[in-house]
Design a protein around this nucleic acid. Structure first.
Lengths: 329, 329
DNA sequence: TTGTAAGCGTTATCAC
DNA sequence: GTGATAACGCTTACAA
């Protein structure tokens, strides 16, 4: 079932069919109609591999997120996919498992697929990744963090600033013994940057550096529960806990209860991400809300501008964040 | 940067380079080495669009899930992607928003991309979808439900049986006034089938039909909280509540607390999905665990068998489910 | 407004 | 073991 079949049935050339599909305004109305009838009759679907080969554009965008296993990046992927699809692009998705070599392997595979653009999560990348990217001219958007030196364009928020704001919030509410659960900043992770911000706020407030509990095997509630339990064994017991995501925070709520601590009276718990369960735990979780979907949409629009339009546009888009105050802090 | 560039540098023909990549065993070792050097030197990456055109296989598999917005299908997508990638396939993802026409549009778009296979969630599909599929010979795997008449292959579990088992569990624990929150069975949804199973169990136990609260705008905790609050206003108050997913169940826990009801003493709450927060709510959530990742892996393997191997293999794979007893029921 | 011809980068086929 | 040639289905450029 190819262009030629349609062309024969409609008694025109393949070019006319191609035009009827791509630039209908350039085709006489009667011809257009005949072609459309033929297409419907045959159930013809254009072969985008052939189209990609002929035009040099695949109309595929690839995105790499750290994990598909929880909902953190789900709304971002959704935002990306829906804006792109409306513009006729498909999304190819990969998860790096927070693992740089895997990211590089994915980038390589996607470049081989001749994707028209790439979305990468975070601003820290392998040398392998950077080299791969440097050799070709693929638009790249980095998301979920901010930097002054993006590969190309970055859409996100400052993880450091988020941590700092959380610290200021704790301070404003009279908390003085802060703690943090998440991943360590050595990994240059986004979670680690939040701790950096918290530490900075502690220093500015003249408080001791926050206690820390690092989880290594993913930021799941299971890992968080044990880590928080350990943290709460320390003396003096912290009176404010910042969790690098809401899954961790949910587990922290439970861990506090297990230790006989009342939230927020004995200890304030503040999450990150505003997962959909956050509003419905008891106590309801105070958290940092990130406009994940907006990140996806803005990233998609930035790409489309590069792909279809002029090529200009902001190189650095800060979507911000917001502390959502509920009951736990 | 194409095959020809590599060929020139290695002083061989393009075919030899192609073979060195695809069938290295057919190439003399010395030639192979020369080619590899040239490839590395140029940073050459094969163009898979051209390859797809020449071979008629894209090495892309498309999957359509109802939503990317929560983590329900995340582990399935992860399982799919990882098995497929190991075999050299990429995943193209779409979300239908639980909307049949959207599913059809996605199928159409994916078929145009000449995907080698399709994964669809659920076993109920549009006529448009079915027709599209009938015209070509693309392997299709349906997931997350079971039917005796799959389009091709189905990998999942019986949603009706899951609902029935939950009912039996309630009965075994002396609960007599059952209730359900989720979507209505008229939509032939998987959530609705769970209610069908619960109703069947109620009938068999000689109990009244379960009270129901249907959510329409997605199965989010926000929708669940209001629905459950309404449900608990009824007299007599139900003593067992089955929620169509754990997000709903988390909200139900909170709603019960809001109404002064103790869980599980006054009312048992049983979720569905074993989301990662389930083990860490208070009370910890009893739930139905679905091996989501296994569904993805088995689906991928079924596809690979069809694509690479003989073509035989089971047409119906039941991965089962399991009631995980924690504190809430 | 429509058609012709060439070519996109790869691989199947067949010859050497 | 290696190479020449002809597709694969589409679109660009140009001609009519």
């Amino acid at each position: 079932m190819r262009l030629l079949d349609v062309a024969r049935l409609a008694r025109v050339s393949t070019m006319t069919v191609s035009r009827a599909l791509r630039h209908p305004e350039q085709v006489a109305v009667s011809t257009l109609r005949a072609v459309q009838v033929a297409i419907a009759q045959l159930g013809y679907l254009p072969d985008s591999a052939a189209s990609a080969l002929a035009t040099g554009r695949s109309r595929i965008v690839a995105a790499i997120v750290p994990t598909l296993m929880n909902s953190v990046y789900a709304s971002t992927v959704h935002g990306l996919a829906s804006v792109l699809r409306r513009a006729g692009y498909e999304l190819m998705l990969g998860d790096s498992g927070y693992h740089a070599p895997t990211e590089a392997a994915l980038v390589r595979s996607f470049l081989g697929r001749r994707v028209d653009a790439l979305v990468l999560t975070g601003v820290e990348h392998d040398n392998a990744t950077r080299e791969l990217l440097a050799r070709r001219e693929v638009p790249v958007v980095e998301i979920w963090d901010l930097t002054t030196k993006p590969i190309d364009t970055v859409v996100g928020f400052s993880n450091v600033a988020a941590g700092r704001e959380v610290g200021r919030y704790f301070q404003a509410h009279g908390r003085s013994r802060w703690a943090f659960v998440g991943t360590s900043p050595e990994r240059e992770s986004r979670s680690g940057k939040r701790l950096l911000g918290l530490r900075e706020a502690a220093r500015q407030a003249g408080l001791d550096a926050p206690l820390t509990a690092f989880v290594t095997d993913g930021m799941s509630p299971a890992a968080g529960h044990a880590a928080v339990l350990d943290l709460l064994r320390l003396q003096p017991v912290p009176d404010a806990l910042f969790c690098a995501n809401d899954a961790l925070a949910t587990a922290a709520l439970r861990a506090a209860a297990d230790r006989g601590l009342s939230v927020p009276r004995h200890i304030a718990v503040l999450g990150f991400g505003d997962f959909d369960v956050a509003a419905h735990t008891s106590p309801a979780l105070s958290t940092v809300r990130i406009p994940g979907r907006v990140i996806g949409e803005r990233a998609a629009k930035a790409l489309l501008a590069r792909l279809e339009g002029s090529g200009a546009g902001d190189r650095r888009i800060d979507v911000g964040f917001e502390i959502v105050v509920r009951e736990s802090a």
